[in-house]
């Protein structure tokens, strides 16, 4: 009941946010168009490179497009839903965060609902186009386990990206320094993991597999769906459970967030 109610309020928050953005329709459409060109350009870059080089190590263009699709859809979802956390540092400075504390709802829920930034969804389009295009080229078998794994992978990826953004926001409870360094991990993570992780040097690959497991939640399930044995030799069962790691990290990050809120309540900074 309480979960259903929370989800309902969350949905209401998002509806209100979308309506507010629709007040500036022309500006919104232009921004959406502009972003579409940027993200489409990034995908076009992959096609251009394959046109020139034919393959990327053992990968063909469809396989890379498939991984690109999963990562970009995940990130688009996370990015759009966590705008509130991006704004959080400013909200602490202006005191607007107090307002959220004065309402009988969890602060994480209210922040997540603060804004659903529609233009950030623009990344979704090339992501979905890449997924569809790749699956026609790859002759994939859409069995129920495979379809479920794709959904799980997107959820796992979105959760992991979201948890990075939540972690970054949580730091704002302790420091007023700009935390742009964290963006390097998030955006660098997108850039990195849209290509198969085995093309990178080992230290770098390990960072995004074990350190910040962005590759883990998208790359390994993608292998299982495409039916390709991992060049790095992970077992198939691992590829199926990998997305759960993303959800796990999100749960941890929300716990850390609560510690941050408690710290805020005692310092009132």
């Amino acid at each position: 009941m309480s979960v259903v109610d929370s989800l309902y309020v969350y949905g209401r928050f998002l509806t209100v946010s979308v309506r507010a953005q629709m007040q500036y329709r022309a500006s919104f459409l232009m921004q959406l168009g502009g972003r579409l060109i940027v993200t489409a350009g990034e995908f076009a870059a992959i096609l251009i490179l394959f046109d020139r080089f034919g393959s990327l190590l053992e990968w063909n263009v469809y396989q890379v497009a498939f991984i690109y699709g999963i990562v970009n859809v995940s990130f688009a979802v996370a990015d759009a839903l966590t705008t509130g956390f991006d704004l959080f540092g400013d909200m602490v400075k202006t005191g607007d965060f107090d307002r959220l504390l004065l309402r009988p709802r969890s602060t994480a829920l209210q922040l997540a609902g603060q804004e659903l930034t529609l233009r950030r969804i623009s990344r979704l389009t090339p992501g979905i186009v890449a997924l569809i295009w790749a699956s026609t080229g790859l002759d994939l078998h859409w069995t129920i386990p495979n379809a479920a794994l794709l959904v799980a992978s997107v959820i796992g990826g979105a959760s992991l990206f979201a948890s990075l953004i939540v972690f970054q926001a949580t730091l704002a409870f302790w420091t007023t320094e700009t935390l742009e360094m964290m963006n390097t991990v998030t955006y660098g993570g997108v850039e990195t993991t849209q290509y198969p992780i085995n093309i990178y040097r080992p230290w770098f690959r390990n960072f995004f597999t074990f350190g910040i497991p962005l590759a883990t939640v998208s790359y390994f399930p993608a292998l299982a769906i495409m039916g390709i044995p991992d060049p790095l030799g992970t077992p198939i069962w691992f590829q199926y459970v990998a997305p759960a790691i993303g959800v796990g990290v999100l749960v941890i990050s929300l716990q850390v967030w609560r510690i941050g809120v408690r710290h805020y309540l005692s310092t009132g900074s």
């Binding site: 500006s27 232009m30 921004q31 168009g33 502009g34 940027v38 350009g41 990034e42 251009i48 046109d51």
Partner: peptide, 30 residues
């Protein structure tokens, strides 16, 4: 004209990114 200028800037930046060579060096284009 547009007050915010965000839209047209995004649009232009997209073109710049692709066709300047920032994403892929231009000689590698088809």
């Amino acid at each position: 004209w547009t007050i915010t200028g965000d839209g047209i800037t995004q649009l232009t930046f997209g073109l710049v990114l692709i066709f300047s060579g920032m994403l892929v060096p231009l000689p590698l284009f088809p």
